[in-house]
Nucleic acid binder design. Structure first.
Lengths: 220, 220
DNA sequence: ATGAAATGTTTACATTGACAACATTTGATG
DNA sequence: CATCAAATGTTGTCAATGTAAACATTTCAT
């Protein structure tokens, strides 16, 4: 488990470096901790997976990362800011995974549309802690950066539907609304699964969801 | 403010008495507070509406209800138990509203099916604080009583779909799964609306949702 | 080498959840 | 009606937490 964590951290550091182009001056720098910011995010995620977001405490996160209880405040304004970082990481992960799926289905527009929905569902079940924080927005104050990421994720679905409409694969209707409807379906399913209301997410059920996803939007 | 509080308490006592049939021995009894239990639930809801569940504190709730900081513990085991009571009240409200809608559409099964979905959506937008607590189950420990209520609410949708299937209005398929799918759609939409991801829940959009709700389940 | 910026620590304080000991009210029983 | 137990509310208390301030150390550019 220690090994796996270590690998994840390394991979994430690479991703992180590639993403944060504005602060790329630090690459192989190892100062006090190594990369405390990322370590805190990982520690938070591990603890959320164990006891939920609610009982998450900054002091415990700090302890888990091996630093003093005030150290996190050098990297995050407050607790919300830490959770916001977790959410941003989550959105980045879905976005990247969706693009990976798109690359595997370059030609079939309808499949791409469905894949963009499945990416959401699969991500939620694979990383429930991330997902929970991402959509606990009624709670932690949303930062502009977070808003941008969630919008970016949504726009993938939007663009996908727009392309299908251009090719007469989805009926003409306000694209924004169709995308909202599609998002509702996958988000609702994802939430019910990770909240334990849907116990066994079978393939059967996922098919019904995919069907609803398409049948509500297709030509009648 | 004192006066208003008092009036609310009285009104709520009436509602409360009508609902809780098992403890109907107390009707016009006014002991220490009137009905602190209900007053605390109302205070909690008001404060959740203002600042979210996250920053809700039992001490503030007690202060708002005009009692000492420890008084709530005579009525609720802990904070989770208070939130659990809020959630139960919420489920009871949706259930009752759904039955009201059913009474208005005694004959049309498909309409009843759609109404059972709309009841969810409308309740969520009308009582977002309730709804948020009801489905924050990944967080507060779920009590058996709460589990029962959420199951009861779900069973309405289930029964509705089963009846439609009996009358060949919805395609044959595991009823449980179809109900889960329908639930996913309305729940996802509701969550995105109250979490601010869907800014203006237009009738257009609700129609797309209703359409998806039906088109995914109907005969092809 | 040096000084400023970044990063981590210690100390401190107010808020909170929750328990225990105590006080008061209510309602049933004689 | 007196009395007593149960229900309800209060006061006092403690540990955990969020977070700010003052201080210490490391890093990095010059």
């Amino acid at each position: 488990m220690c090994l796996r964590t270590r690998i994840n951290v390394d991979i994430d550091n690479i991703k992180h470096a590639a993403r944060m182009k504005d602060t790329l001056k630090k690459e192989n720098t190892t100062y006090h901790h190594g990369n405390l910011r990322k370590a805190l995010i990982d520690a938070a995620l591990a603890m959320i997976a164990e006891n939920g977001v609610k009982s998450l405490s900054i002091r415990e996160v700090a302890k888990k990362a091996g630093v003093s209880h005030s150290a996190p405040y050098r990297h995050f304004k407050d607790k919300d800011d830490l959770l916001s970082a977790v959410a941003i990481e989550g959105f980045d992960m879905v976005i990247q995974d969706t693009f990976r799926r798109f690359d595997r289905n370059k030609d079939d527009l309808l499949t791409r549309f469905q894949e963009s929905g499945l990416a959401y569902i699969d991500f939620a079940t694979a990383y429930p802690s991330h997902y929970r924080v991402m959509f606990a927005s009624g709670e932690h104050h949303t930062s502009p950066a977070l808003d941008e990421r969630s919008r970016e994720a949504f726009m993938i679905l939007y663009t996908c539907i727009a392309e299908c409409q251009s090719n007469n694969l989805i009926r003409p209707h306000d694209t924004f609304e169709l995308a909202m409807a599609a998002w509702s379906i996958v988000h609702g399913y994802a939430m019910l699964v990770i909240d334990g209301f849907i116990k066994d997410p079978s393939d059967h059920l996922k098919n019904v969801i995919t069907r609803s996803l398409y049948f509500g939007l297709k030509y009648e």
